[in-house]
Amino acid sequence: MEKSTHLQLKLFAARMRKLIIEGVYSAQSGHPGGSLSSTEIFAYLYGSKMRVDPATPENPDRDRFVLSKGHCAPGLYAALSQRGFFDPCNIKDFRKCGSMLQGHPCRACIPGVDMSTGSLGQGISTAVGMAMMGKLDKKDYRVYSILGDGELQEGQVWEALMSAAHYKLDNLSAFIDFNGLQIDGKTDDVMSLGSIEAKVSAFGWHMIPVDGHDFEAIEAAVTEAENTKGKPTMVVAKTHKGKGVSFMEDQAGWHGKAPNQQEYEQAMAELDATLAELEVQA
């Protein structure tokens, strides 16, 4: 990865994190933890990889993205707004009456949102449908999706994985945000998943474990996915929930909680400092 691209992506991610906190703070509700853990994945896809154009959000040849863990809408909205799909100032109205920015992604109301999600397990199936039609129509678009590790407890995820392997959807690359946490605590305590890597492989997917906060590793995995023929690829991204805000990191309690004013100020101070450091390098 070019040094300048790497820095641009880090800036994209740093600005995203501020928007995530901004949105959740002004709504006084929403999901910061998983949005922050997926930030680098969002940033890589929307900041560099995906062939999408805010001027033509419905272009039939565009790459598609489905946020299967729809509760991480703040992350998606931060990425979309930075990519130019809408003005980031909309984020202060997140979850408010009259705002297009619904609590969970809404396809009908938000430009750039390819699928409405929020009910865990369904998004990955819709991504499978999109990839199947890409094959039928002989189009070269790719379909991306992010799942939560807790989400893997939904049986439908495995139905979707099975069907993607059956239809040899090598135009589909999904990510598991492997942060080890869900609402009620550690995934291992709530309902242990065993070896995610082994399960995904056993379902016929190409599986690539990566550090989910490392852009170069994410890029290498996505490139490997593109070069993998005859099967879909799952990037199992080891992450830290709440990444970037010290007191939120690896805390299940920050799954779906908004910061109070003091917490907000501390979070923003930390995120501003990170951003300032990057801006100096730019």
Binding site: S125, G129, G155, E159
Partner: peptide, 26 residues
């Protein structure tokens, strides 16, 4: 045959897959 897809005994997945397909002008 190219436009018929058997999704197996997985009706929940089938409905969501159908939704995803329809977004591709189907």
């Amino acid at each position: 045959p190219e436009r018929h897809f058997n999704m197996g005994i997985a009706e929940g997945n089938m409905m969501s897959v159908a939704a995803g397909m329809s977004t591709c002008d189907k």
